[in-house]
Design a protein around this nucleic acid. Sequence first.
DNA 1: CCGCATCCCTTTGGATACTG
DNA 2: CAGTATCCAAAGGGATGCGG
Lengths: 137, 137
Amino acid sequence: MSFKQFYMATKVKECSTNAYNLKVLADSCEVNDVLAMISPRWKMQILYSISKGVRQFNCLQKTFPSLSDQVLGKRLKELVNEGLVEKTMLADTVPQQTLYTHTKRAEALLEIILELYLWGKKEWDLQACTVGKKLPV
Amino acid sequence: MSFKQFYMATKVKECSTNAYNLKVLADSCEVNDVLAMISPRWKMQILYSISKGVRQFNCLQKTFPSLSDQVLGKRLKELVNEGLVEKTMLADTVPQQTLYTHTKRAEALLEIILELYLWGKKEWDLQACTVGKKLPV
DNA sequence: CCGCATCCCTTTGGATACTG
DNA sequence: CAGTATCCAAAGGGATGCGG
């Protein structure tokens, strides 16, 4: 019987193995929360695009043609919940318009992401990253 | 028919949807490679522990009691392949001994990870992160 | 135009068992 | 001690279709 199984059997019966491991990670090192926040696919790219002026659902879809709208919606909702993006309903019209803008908090994060990019570029000579470049708006 | 499906039907028949999207991500923003590198579960924690002096397979297992050994092995292999960790076989004895040490490249990465932690701490008042603390060796 | 509900498939992480 | 091979379950991403 593994440590995890023992622990679960005695302490947290209702909790799945995966949930348990996530809790251990969160307890032992909370930078893990940040990693989990930035690692979902497309998420930082979406945030970056917003910070560069791509502010509407529709435009974001065009920016990432192979990203499905429900995933885009999910990511946007996450970003809003995390305080990285603000959502503004322009008017209650049909068709409605919504603007997404990045927050101060997101700016600080994007700077660190840029450092990550530079680190990757330095170590592996990566090219053509959109971070640090101008996007077509 | 979505852009992706069209593209796949005409260009990359052999490639799964997921693989295709990963390629799009890699092409459009190569910081994604770095994000993918650091986001697997336990990986940065393992790297950090190694940098703090936990250098053997066995000790790493004890450091993360709920981490299974085959996942630990997988992560270590990844870290070695990425040049973040070096593996040293001490001798061809039984029981054999192996040491893992972090590289210069890893140090630079860990500094950025630390910034991520500080950012998270500042924005959400996270606590108890092992990054920046001493681990029991 | 801006999304959500549902279903499905791929990927990933973990369990068990085994080897030098 | 230091791992590897095989199998399996869960999570996440994506497709289709629908509603405000």
